[in-house]
């Protein structure tokens, strides 16, 4: 049974950039980091979110947790609209939604001990520092595979993979339901990356977690996700279950993205065999008209330059935003 835990509808985040100057005289431009995005994340599943740098993945993840305020659109958590609720009411929801970051070095306060770092969410939600809290923290540490003697250590004493475990423990200590993993394994060496991916999967099973797994590595996303959403320049262009999207992608951008992944064996070298998309990602400040992918799309048609395609159901559970599939 699939029940949505998170539903985003028409979610947008526009940043004003380049403005300010002396007395705010310089005119600001609007950067549409996330533009009218709608999707759901089902309870207990992992939704992978892929796309190239700057396409709005992190912004979208932070919007869901209301770490930044949306320009428009709504977010529902467990059926309740949390888009406009106040700070205090939001605090209640914060217990249920947490985030794990990419940079194992920037994600932990260097002046706090591991115990204080992991206990902080508990303390914020009313726990008294003491034996009981310490016990909970120790249990969490063990769950993520760190010994209790790590408690009174400081972040600089740990390797990148160990820091990532501490960050995971901090995110899980309140027993949340939704975790946004923003490139949680991208900065790690492959051998350590595999340890953390396994850990995330074990914890998901054990604690019934729901993940939004943001990453740019398509093979890791395939491994960990149930469904995958692809973003391009602030838009979600395709969503489908992972088998479908990797085996039979419909959107030309998804196709290009998968074709660009390096071969896993020298016998499957892609040069000269797979289609490449040319050019660079256009600037998000000045995105192309109509379909944002039209400047690089090998199948571009006149209509693509004029009208933006909408995200539509192309098959059961498979949504695409492309004029090709509209016809």
């Amino acid at each position: 049974m699939t029940t949505p835990l998170v539903t985003a509808s028409g979610l947008s985040k526009h940043f004003e950039v380049g403005g300010g100057g002396f007395f705010g005289l310089r005119k600001a431009a609007t950067l549409k980091a996330v533009d009218e995005v709608s999707f759901t994340i089902n309870a207990g599943e992992t939704l992978g979110l892929v796309g190239e740098s700057g396409c709005g993945k992190s912004t979208l993840g932070r919007l869901l947790l209301r770490l930044i305020e949306p320009t428009s659109g709504t977010i529902a958590f467990d059926g309740n609209d949390i888009t406009r609720i106040g700070r205090m009411e939001m605090r209640g929801y914060r217990r249920s939604m947490q985030i794990i970051f990419q940079d194992p070095y920037g994600a932990l306060n260097p002046r706090m001990s591991v115990e204080d770092i992991i206990a902080e969410p508990l303390v914020i939600h009313g726990a008294k520092p003491g034996a009981e809290t310490r016990k909970q923290v120790t249990q969490m540490l063990e769950k993520v595979g760190l010994p209790a003697r790590a408690l009174d250590r400081f972040p600089h004493e740990f390797s990148g993979g160990q820091r990532q475990r501490i960050g995971i423990a901090r995110a899980l200590v309140l027993h949340p339901r939704l975790i946004v993993c923003d490139e949680a394994v991208s900065a790690l060496d492959v051998s350590v990356q595999a340890q953390i991916v396994n850990l995330l999967q074990d914890l998901q099973r054990e604690m019934g977690l729901t993940y939004l797994f943001i990453a740019h590595d398509l093979s890791v996303v395939r491994h960990i996700s149930d469904r995958v959403a692809v973003m391009y320049l602030g838009k979600v262009v395709e969503v489908a279950d992972k088998k479908t999207i990797y085996a039979a992608p419909l959107h030309p951008y998804t196709q290009a993205l998968i074709a660009a992944v390096p071969a896993q064996h020298p016998a499957q070298r892609s040069r000269g065999r797979r289609q490449r998309i040319a050019g660079d990602i256009p600037s998000a400040l000045n995105p192309p008209s109509g379909c944002r992918f039209h400047t690089r799309c090998p199948h571009v048609m006149p209509v693509c330059r004029e009208r933006a395609p909408e995200l539509r159901e192309a098959a059961a559970g498979h949504q695409v935003a492309c004029h090709l599939t509209d016809i």
Binding site: R62, L65, L67, M90, R91, R94, R95, M97, Q98, I99, F101, Q102, D103, G106, A107, L108, N109, P110, R111, M112, I117, E120, P121, I124, H125, G167, R170, A171, L174
Partner: peptide, 26 residues
């Protein structure tokens, strides 16, 4: 903008706590 500050916000920390525990000491 440090991620540990964002993590504290995500955990529900208020401005005062963030300033006192995460920003000023650093």
């Amino acid at each position: 903008e440090m991620e540990y500050v964002q993590a504290a916000v995500a955990a529900g920390a208020g401005h005062w706590r963030i300033l006192r525990h995460h920003i000023l000491p650093n």
